[in-house]
Design a protein around this nucleic acid. Structure first.
Lengths: 184, 184
DNA sequence: ACCTGAACACCGTTCAAGT
DNA sequence: ACCTGAACACCGTTCAAGT
């Protein structure tokens, strides 16, 4: 006799994302997800293939959100100003979702990795803005310069690698201003 | 009756590092370390406080090696040339120790994180080289720009986040050249 | 068609008992 | 003083049995 599902893939992903944000990747156990959505751990496997597949779905969800936030930052009038806004939104996103952002480019098992397509879509607004600033043949390289810097900065900030004193806001401003200059 | 130790902290760290390099962080289990050094898992706790503490020691070992490699890249005659060499050595190091490099700035539990002192010592050659290129009041910000870019680039490269085509060597050269220009 | 308890193969870690 | 087996509390995952 068919029995209706007590949960859904959406609820499972959302719950898992919350668990990661509050307790890091080790805080995501199938048992905790299960009890949070009101079933037992084995039932989760009706909705998701494995813990790794769930983690991948969560990271892809985060990447999609980041992409949306970045798209909103692009006004389209002034590429230099857009790039500053993009960098700021990028950093703010990372700081407000530190654990899940951290997983997006982290060295994790292949099975957990988000689809590269989604990562590229997420950083798409950066590429399009940079394309408006430099020669077409340098656009990809220039976008990679900005994206690498932005990710490197926020990931080092999140793990506390910048502790020589100094103001991190100043360092971030210094960085984005020099990059805009270098590309403008 | 005293019995001599069958292993040592150095051997344990070295073995653990090899396990991480060949199988990622999940490849480092206390049981595998133990059997590789010829004891049973419980004996490891005579030499190391916990798995997390062992991971921290391994990352610190890697950071020390990276610092040494970077120091050798600094010739001291031409800061711009030194910076290009530093960036190249940084990237080469990451690519030849992908798994353990990846852990150095990864979002891992607090207990596993390397001492910040060691991270700063590792990136010290970058700071000192940049200090020879810019105004003293901008040195820290400028060093953070270069370090963030270098780490961001290689960590994204290692996880395969750059897949829009294009040549990664070109992108790396483009990046370091623009940065040297921007600071010079 | 989904949920469950029981079971399996792993973990990290503790601890009393050996030598 | 270090090593060991046994045990404990957890994991992720499978599967036969329930409804």
């Amino acid at each position: 006799m068919p029995t209706p599902s007590h949960t859904s893939i959406e609820e499972i992903v959302e719950t898992g994302r919350r668990l990661i944000e509050s307790g890091g990747i080790d805080g995501l156990t199938m048992q905790k997800v299960a009890s949070a959505v009101g079933v037992r751990a084995p039932s989760l496997y009706k909705h998701v293939q494995s813990r790794g597949a769930l983690i991948r779905l969560i990271i892809e969800d985060v990447a999609t959100d980041l992409g949306r936030s970045l798209e909103e930052a692009v006004l389209g009038d002034d590429p230099g100003g857009d790039l500053v806004r993009l960098a700021t939104v990028f950093r703010d996103f990372a700081r407000s979702h530190p654990e899940s952002y951290g997983l997006m480019f982290a060295p994790i098992p292949e099975e957990w990795r988000p689809a590269t397509t989604l990562l590229m879509e997420a950083t798409g607004p950066m590429l399009r803005t940079v394309e408006a600033m430099v020669d077409p043949e340098n656009a990809l390289e220039a976008a990679r310069l900005v994206t690498a810097w932005a990710h490197g900065f926020v990931s080092m900030e999140l793990v506390g690698a910048f502790r020589l004193g100094g103001d991190l806001e100043d360092a971030f401003q210094f960085g984005i201003e020099r990059l805009v200059e270098a590309l403008g």
